[in-house]
Simulated assay, not measured.
Amino acid sequence: MDYELAIENAPDTIPGGTGILLIHPSTGETDRIDTDFLKTDTDRLLVISTRTTAREVQQKLEYYGVDEERADILDTLSVERGYSRRSSEHVHYVSSPDDLAGVIDITRQFLTENEGKRRISLDSVTEMAYYADEERALEAVEELLELLEEHDAVGLFHLSEEVHSEADVAAFKELFDGIVSLDEDGTVEADF
């Protein structure tokens, strides 16, 4: 199954099972790329957020016109920070951003229970590595990519380049079929 891709300078379509690494500066404005990815040619979507709360994700989706009826959100921050949580069948929580087993379990459940074209956004791998560590984050990303392949889904994984060593960035890049780079000035380059 092919998925349309609304990312400038990238292919028009990508096959199911494709993982894309979005490399950006820490100040980079990734919301537009992320939401264009999520709202194009999609039946169900899962936003895994290690950087913002479910409420903030909902506001972002609404602002950029992503159909919230199709969205599941996995909030990894609210429990640890003691924020109030409104559970619903489409908002999920794990105890903290380093609960990688929980993240993988909920992603597996989402992919298993939903039919059709499914997209996942992980914002961000950098925060995941900050809370867990580079090696555990790398292993978790590998597992998530295997799930995408197994379920014919696609995913976009955010990585803030300057926070990681060159070796770590290279290790993450090796896992992905596509690399999208966002520069400070908003220029987008893609390598598939």
Rank of each mutant, 00 (worst) to 15 (best):
D2C: 03
A6T: 04
I7F: 10
A10L: 08
A10C: 07
P11Y: 03
D12Y: 08
T13M: 11
I14D: 01
I14K: 05
P15S: 15
P15F: 15
I20H: 02
I23Y: 07
T27P: 06
E29N: 09
D31F: 08
R32S: 04
I33S: 01
I33G: 01
I33Q: 04
I33Y: 12
F37C: 03
L38E: 12
K39Q: 05
T40G: 01
D41W: 11
T42V: 05
D43C: 11
S49T: 08
T50V: 13
T50H: 14
R51A: 13
R51P: 08
R55W: 13
E56I: 12
V57I: 14
V57M: 13
Q59L: 09
L61I: 11
E68F: 07
R70K: 15
R70S: 13
A71S: 00
A71E: 02
D75R: 13
T76V: 14
T76K: 14
S78R: 06
V79G: 06
E80G: 03
R81L: 09
Y83F: 14
Y83M: 14
S88M: 13
E89C: 07
S96K: 03
D99C: 10
A101T: 14
V103Q: 14
V103Y: 11
I104T: 10
I106R: 11
L111I: 09
L111Q: 01
E113Q: 12
N114P: 00
G116A: 03
K117C: 09
R119F: 15
I120W: 00
S121G: 00
S124Y: 06
S124D: 09
V125Y: 05
V125A: 02
T126L: 05
E127C: 03
E127I: 04
E127T: 02
M128A: 00
A132K: 07
D133Y: 04
E135K: 11
R136D: 15
A137C: 02
A137M: 07
E139C: 06
E139W: 10
A140L: 04
E143P: 02
L144D: 04
L145G: 01
L147V: 03
E149H: 09
H151E: 07
D152H: 06
V154T: 05
V154K: 04
L156P: 02
L156Q: 02
L156H: 00
F157M: 08
H158F: 12
H158G: 07
E161K: 07
D168L: 14
V169D: 11
V169R: 01
A170E: 04
A171V: 11
K173D: 13
E174A: 15
E174N: 12
I179L: 15
L182E: 02
L182A: 03
L182V: 06
L182W: 09
D185F: 10
G186W: 13
E189C: 06
D191C: 05
F192V: 05
